[in-house]
């Protein structure tokens, strides 16, 4: 009978030992306090953001037309502030141009999808964006008076969505980094805070840009901005940061002392 002289272990079964204590410390001492702080102060944050956006928009619109509104949000924690802005309703001429351009671009998307059966990720994403915009154009063409949102109502909706994104991100980023992050505690904290700071800055700038578009260009772009340029991009940068973070961990665990961390059984 042949004997095995060597037991062959491959990367197929290697794994790490979880540092449950560190994971718990990170979640309880970093993520949870951030969550509590955010829930306590999001009203104030939204107020400061609304004031900042009002200041910037007053460069384009007379300040007397601008205001700060308040709307209910989460029951115990309070409502959100948002900027009160005038609606820039599209003229018939603008609606027609938008409709024509959307139909042209849509037919290009569908034509390219037919040529390349099944489409490509970007062409399908653009097609969905254009379809949503098409619905908005039809709405403004035939039922302008029934459009459900004024610019101020949209501002409130968007502020609530933005606050929700920040809330969701604290939980998501915290869980993903806390559970599937393999760095030291300081590394995890740095990654988590980096994501949240970027998310906050990105969200503020996006709110400003969107309100500027709605109030100075046209409210016809509301739906497009809400659905296709909203949370999707938040998740792209979350995954970007996570990818960079994980790449550093992959290198760490494959070189030097990091290799000793692997368990082979």
């Amino acid at each position: 009978m042949q004997k095995k002289t060597q037991i062959y272990y491959s990367r197929s079964y290697r794994h790490l030992e979880p540092n449950s204590r560190e994971q718990l410390v990170f979640l309880l001492m970093c993520v949870l306090p951030c969550l509590i702080l955010f829930c306590t102060y999001y009203s104030e944050l939204s107020f400061q953001l609304a004031v900042l956006v009002k200041m910037e928009i007053s460069n384009f619109i007379q300040e007397s037309f601008l205001g700060i509104g308040y709307g209910d949000f989460l029951p115990v924690f309070g409502g959100v502030y948002f900027i009160d802005i005038p609606s820039k309703t599209p003229s018939f001429h603008e609606v027609v141009i938008n409709l024509a351009a959307t139909l042209l671009l849509l037919s290009m998307c569908f034509f390219s999808t037919k040529i390349r059966k099944g489409g490509t990720p970007l062409s399908i994403y653009f097609a969905i964006t254009l379809l949503i915009h098409l619905i908005a154009c039809i709405y403004f063409m035939f039922a302008k008076e029934f459009y459900p949102y004024s610019a101020t109502q949209y501002s409130e909706l968007y502020m609530k969505q933005q606050v929700s994104i920040w809330l969701a991100f604290i939980v998501l980023a915290g869980l993903i980094i806390g559970v599937f992050g393999y760095a030291s505690l300081t590394g995890k904290i740095a990654a988590f805070l980096g994501i949240m700071v970027y998310s906050f800055i990105f969200g503020c700038i996006r709110y400003l840009v969107f309100m500027l578009i709605i109030s100075t260009v046209s409210i016809i772009y509301m739906a497009t901005l809400f659905f296709t340029l909203g949370p999707l991009f938040d998740f792209i940068y979350l995954v970007c940061f996570y990818g960079i973070y994980i790449n550093s961990q992959i290198k760490r665990f494959d070189r030097g002392e990091g290799r000793l961390k692997w368990h082979w059984l």
């Binding site: 990720p121 393999y182 792209i236 995954v239 970007c240 790449n247 992959i250 290198k251 494959d254």
Partner: peptide, 26 residues
């Protein structure tokens, strides 16, 4: 990718975001 020790490919992850719409359709 961490288990396999595949360096740098993880940086492509954000591109998969748009694949989501592609799979949704097909």
């Amino acid at each position: 990718l961490l288990v396999d020790g595949t360096e740098d490919e993880v940086l492509l992850l954000p591109l998969i975001t748009f694949n989501f719409y592609y799979y949704l359709w097909n």
